[in-house]
C-alpha cells in the first residue's frame, strides 16, 4: 500500500509540469495582450512596459524564465493589479476559497453518503422516493438560484444568518456559501451511493454472506458498503472541480474575498501570471484530490493495489 502511494505521488510531478506547459501555451494563444485596453499608452511607454515584464522576449525565453521563477515559488507580478504579486493575491484569497470548498465537500460527504445508504436500504419506500425527488432538484438547480434563495429565507426572512460578506474568524458568514456549494455535490453523492449499493447488494458475495447467517447489519456495513463507495470516491475529483468553478458564482453572490474571481477577471485582463498562478494552484489541488481518491480506492478494493 505504501509503495502504491509513493508511486502515485511520484506520478504527480510530471503531470503538474504538463499542466504548466500546456496552460502557458494556451494562455498566450489567446489574442490580445495585457496592456491593449489602456488606450492612453504611447508606443514608447507600451514598449517599456513590455520590456519590464519580459513580454518583448521570445516565448521560449519567457517560458524558461517563468519555470525558473516557479521552482523558487515565485508566480511573478500581477499585470492587472500592479501593486501586488500573484503570490500575494493568492495568499489573500485562497484561504477563504479553500475553507469554503473543503467545508462544502465535507458537508456533502456527511449528507450524501448516509442519504444514499438510507435510500438503498429502504428501497422503494417513502424515504427513498423523497430523496430521489429532492436529489434531482438539488442537482438541477444552479447555485446562482439556490444561493439567493437561501439568503432570502435564512437571512432576510428568518434573520438567522448574515446575507453576505466576510469577517475573518466568524463562521456564520460561511454557512450559506458552504450550504449552496455542498447541496448539488451531496445530491450527486447520494444518487451514486444509492445505485451502487443496490448493485452490490445483488452480487453473489452478498448472497453468500447472507447464507453464512451474518445478519443484515453486518452484511451491509462489512460486506457491501466498501465496494459500494467506489463510485462516490471516484466522484471526489470532479466534485472538487465543481466546487472550484462554482466558487466564482458563490463568492460573487455572497460577496466573499476568495480566489474565484481571479481566474475569470485575470483571463479577461490577459493577466498572464495571475491566470497561470490560478491554473497551477487549482491543478495542484485537483491532482492532490484525485490522489486521495485513488488511495481511498486502493483501500476500498484490494485488487487495485496489485495492478
Amino acid at each position: 500500500m505504501l509503495r502504491y502511494a509513493l508511486r502515485r505521488i511520484g506520478g504527480l510531478i510530471p503531470t503538474l509540469f504538463v499542466i504548466v506547459t500546456l496552460s502557458f501555451c494556451v494562455v498566450r494563444l489567446a489574442p490580445g495582450g495585457p496592456f491593449d485596453q489602456e488606450q492612453t499608452l504611447t508606443p514608447l511607454v507600451r514598449a517599456n512596459l513590455d520590456r519590464l515584464y519580459g513580454l518583448d522576449q521570445p516565448l521560449s525565453v519567457q517560458y524558461g524564465h517563468y519555470l525558473r521563477g516557479l521552482l523558487h515559488g515565485d508566480f511573478g507580478p500581477s499585470l492587472s493589479q500592479r501593486d501586488f504579486t500573484v503570490s500575494e493575491l493568492i495568499a489573500q484569497g485562497l484561504p477563504v476559497s479553500v475553507v469554503i470548498g473543503l467545508c462544502a465537500i465535507l458537508l456533502a460527504l456527511l449528507i450524501g453518503i448516509p442519504a444514499g445508504i438510507a435510500a438503498a436500504t429502504w428501497r422503494n419506500q417513502g424515504a427513498d422516493h423523497g430523496l430521489t425527488v429532492f436529489a434531482a432538484l438539488a442537482v438541477a438547480l444552479p447555485s446562482f438560484v439556490t444561493g439567493p434563495l437561501f439568503a432570502l429565507v435564512f437571512a432576510l426572512t428568518l434573520h438567522w444568518l448574515p446575507v453576505a460578506g466576510w469577517e475573518p474568524g466568524a463562521p456564520r458568514y460561511l454557512v450559506l456559501p458552504v450550504l449552496t456549494l455542498a447541496l448539488p455535490v451531496a445530491a450527486h453523492l447520494a444518487r451514486l451511493t444509492r445505485v451502487s449499493l443496490l448493485e452490490v447488494l445483488r452480487s453473489p458475495w452478498i448472497r453468500s454472506a447472507r447464507a453464512r447467517g451474518l445478519g443484515g447489519a453486518r452484511v451491509l456495513w462489512r460486506h457491501a458498503l466498501r465496494p459500494a463507495l467506489l463510485p462516490a470516491v471516484s466522484y471526489l475529483g470532479p466534485a472538487l472541480a465543481y466546487v472550484v468553478t462554482g466558487s466564482l458564482v458563490v463568492e460573487t453572490v455572497f460577496g466573499l474575498p476568495g480566489t474565484g474571481r481571479y481566474l475569470v477577471q485575470g483571463a479577461i485582463d490577459r493577466d498572464y501570471p495571475l491566470v497561470m498562478g490560478m491554473i497551477i494552484v487549482y491543478g495542484a489541488l485537483l491532482l492532490i484530490f484525485n490522489l486521495v481518491a485513488d488511495l481511498l480506492y486502493g483501500w476500498l478494493d484490494p485488487r487495485v493495489r496489485h495492478e
Binding site: 452480487s203 453473489p204 458475495w205 453468500s208 454472506a209 447464507a211 453464512r212 462489512r222 478494493d301 484490494p302
Partner: peptide, 13 residues
C-alpha cells in the same frame, strides 16, 4: 452453503 464461482462468491475486500 458452498456456491459456484468462488471468485465472486467471496467478499473481495
Amino acid at each position: 452453503m458452498v456456491f459456484q464461482d468462488p471468485m465472486t462468491s467471496l467478499t473481495p475486500h
